[in-house]
């Protein structure tokens, strides 16, 4: 999901017409603390977990290449799903170096380029991390790993793994590990934490705290739009299961749900531990809005849970449930980009 000027422009219009002074320390929150805590408890916590899970995935794939047992393969699949969960839970704040340094497409490009993948598997190159890194984005990241682990129909057997595939898988996983470490360190040892936490106070990126708050709100609304009107809408409208995003592992509904959970994480300021957050800010200013946001988050997650078959099938057999989930996510998006954005513009300078 890309940051969009249209969204930003609307928000900016609002701030011009409704600037109010609010240092906010008299309430139960500090806007400075909220920004700091988002960086530490959400962005850094999520990316650190992602980097740790992909490291384990790489280890599991290395084990599988050495010893092709069903247990080792199952372990690879399980760790792919755990890594995928951390990544999807980061897509509610897809801004900063992951976007500007072009890391997102290297981790999560869809679709896979099958022709090129075949030709890579048939060439004579030695696969290593550097080789994978030099390839096109449609040949690296989550989805080629998914395709090679599950196979095109999702039921690949151990006998179907060729030695070239195994070698390529290991190099792919090494590359994914490196990329996710890069994202994590951009917030931890890199400068982006300071840019974000010091918004309006010397930050080169965020000249006001309002801009940093709106970055969070826009990203939350943005992923809602991406899920409801992109990831779900395209396969449904064109009635084409080939357009589904994680088809091989049949993981799409879990992906969507983790995206909404990512919105919740940003709102609550929590991946595992929790400090101050947008929730603290909203509760101090408008309790009923806090209730409304939480209700809509859980309604969206519940609606996704009501889809009981893989998404590639649901677009044909459970269209009502799919549309209900889309509408629940659109409701959430609306309260974020209207009510929450308005409140931020009224209270945060």
């Amino acid at each position: 999901m890309q940051f969009r000027f249209i969204l930003f422009s609307l928000a900016s219009v609002l701030v011009l017409s409704s600037c109010k002074k609010d240092k906010s320390n008299s309430d139960d929150y500090s806007s400075t603390q909220i920004l700091n805590d988002f960086s530490v408890n959400v962005a850094q916590a999520t990316y650190n977990d992602l980097a740790s899970k992909t490291e384990q995935l790489h280890q599991a794939i290395t084990n599988f290449t050495q010893n092709q047992t069903q247990a080792n393969l199952d372990n690879c699949k399980s760790l792919w799903k755990q890594s995928r969960q951390a990544w999807e839970q980061s897509e509610g704040f897809l801004f900063g170096p992951v976007a500007t340094d072009d890391i997102d497409p290297r981790i999560d490009t869809w679709p896979v380029d099958f022709n090129s993948l075949d030709s890579v598997l048939n060439n004579q190159s030695v696969y290593d991390e550097a080789y994978v890194n030099s390839l096109e984005d449609a040949l690296k990241g989550f989805h080629p790993v998914e395709y090679l682990l599950w196979g095109v129909d999702g039921n690949k057997t151990i006998a179907q793994f060729t030695s070239r595939q195994l070698d390529y898988l290991e190099a792919l996983a090494a590359n994914l590990k490196t990329l996710t470490q890069q994202v994590a360190s951009s917030w931890t040892t890199g400068n982006y934490h300071n840019e974000f936490a010091n918004a309006g106070n010397g930050s080169q990126v965020f000249t006001t705290q309002h801009a940093a708050f709106m970055e969070m709100v826009s990203a939350m609304a943005g992923i809602c739009e991406e899920v409801a009107d992109g990831k779900m809408e395209d396969p449904l409208v064109s009635q084409n299961a080939m357009l589904e995003e994680s088809p091989f592992a049949k993981n799409s509904i879990i992906d969507f749900t983790n995206n909404i959970k990512s919105v919740e994480n940003v709102y609550l300021g929590k991946y595992t531990s929790q400090g101050q957050s947008l929730e603290s800010f909203v509760r101090a200013n408008n309790l009923s809005l806090d209730g409304s946001i939480k209700t809509k988050i859980s309604a969206a997650i519940t609606a996704l849970g009501n889809i009981t078959v893989p998404f590639g099938q649901a677009i044909f057999t459970q269209q009502t449930q799919v549309i209900n989930a889309q509408n629940a996510i659109r409701d959430l998006k609306s309260v974020l980009e209207n009510d929450l954005a308005n409140l931020v513009s009224q209270k945060i300078q």
Partner: peptide, 22 residues
């Protein structure tokens, strides 16, 4: 919105089920 999605679509080599023609 249609254009926005197409603006982000990644193309791959043909033939392919999705976005061929790179």
């Amino acid at each position: 919105e249609m254009g926005d999605k197409a603006f982000e679509a990644t193309f791959v080599s043909a033939p392919a089920p999705l976005n061929p023609g790179l």
